[in-house]
């Protein structure tokens, strides 16, 4: 049997230097100066958790907290605009989000615990790459603006997320189109965790659909994510719904499509198959409640 030697390596004492830039440009420059030795930090809740998990903290932290203009929720024309440094708790309490993006508020309620929501920011939740708000933002057709070496840019959230974790971008804004017809919009977000609150997602799912005057699905967005499942749009499932009435037949088709097309990976807690089933049932139960012929009595019997 091989003899293995575990020798100590020089590890720096874990007390990072913290920079407080005033502008996005300055923050960007600090990052360029320090390269891989530097990380941006907003609320710090993810970095704190990762330190607890034994990941070394970057020797230089560039705090974004002192940069002005990155906080707050406003309406600009057809868009809601959220500053990335707005805390999760401020977003959750925002009357504008409650009115125009209820499924995002649902997602925010499910994130961590009050202490984390008071510090953590929506920008951080996005940049973390696994945040519970991502599927909700995806179904809301959110786009993000960010700053990188070619200046300010905008991308749909999905494209931005798909760029990958190594992206050095600095988030400057989040835009959500205002819904045109809330009467005919159905939207929701559902998360399952390992306990009722303050838990990592096992799986989460979000949906937004708009029905036309004939009660057929006109617009549809389905998304899922959580923990090690990358946030994703469920495009094939969306196609099953588009143009259809919400009927038992449609839901059965949707169930089959989700089973065939959505393959989340498992983890140490549960299998990917479980995640697929739970996500499908959560989506389908909400659509079922909104079916045209879905009297409550019948639902009572079925459930």
């Amino acid at each position: 049997m091989a003899v293995e030697r575990y020798a100590g390596s020089v590890s720096h004492v874990d007390t990072p230097l913290i920079r407080f830039p005033r502008t996005l440009e300055e923050a960007w420059e600090k990052k360029q100066e320090n390269g891989a030795d530097a990380s941006y930090i907003a609320g710090g809740t993810v970095i704190q958790m990762q330190r607890g998990q034994g990941y070394p903290c970057s020797p230089v932290l560039i705090s974004l907290e002192t940069i002005e203009g990155l906080k707050g929720i406003t309406i600009h024309g057809d868009y809601l605009e959220i500053g990335p440094l707005t805390t999760l708790e401020a977003c959750r309490r925002s009357p504008l989000l409650q009115q125009h993006a209820p499924c995002l508020v649902e997602a925010l309620i499910s994130v961590a615990a009050p202490g984390v929501r008071n510090r953590g920011t929506i920008g951080g939740n996005i940049m973390y790459g696994k945040g519970d708000t991502l599927p909700a933002l995806l179904v809301l057709d959110a786009s993000v603006s960010f700053f990188d070496n070619s200046g300010f840019q905008s991308l749909p959230l999905l494209s931005f997320v798909n760029k990958g974790e190594t992206s050095p971008d600095l988030l400057s804004g989040i835009k959500i189109p205002l819904p045109t017809d809330t009467e005919r919009t159905i939207s929701f977000f559902k998360k399952t965790g390992r306990r009722e609150a303050f838990s990592l997602s096992v799986i989460n799912a979000a949906c937004r659909l708009v029905l036309d005057e004939e009660k057929k699905v006109e617009e549809v967005r389905l998304a899922a994510g959580g923990a090690n499942v990358p946030p994703q749009c469920l495009t094939e499932a969306e196609n099953t719904l588009r143009g259809e009435m919400l009927s038992t037949k449609t839901l059965r088709n949707l169930h089959e499509t989700l089973s065939a097309s959505f393959h989340p990976s498992g983890d140490s807690y549960c299998s990917g198959r479980y995640k697929q089933k739970a996500a499908a049932h959560l989506i389908l139960s909400h659509l079922y409640e909104n079916m045209e012929q879905s009297p409550m009595e019948r639902r009572g019997e079925d459930a």
């Binding site: 091989a2 293995e4 100590g8 390596s9 590890s11 004492v13 874990d14 007390t15």
Partner: peptide
């Protein structure tokens, strides 16, 4: 911090 750093400098060799 010094105690933690020192742990890393204690070399233990094992035969699993």
């Amino acid at each position: 911090e010094e105690a933690e750093a020192a742990l890393a400098f204690i070399e233990v060799t094992y035969e699993p």
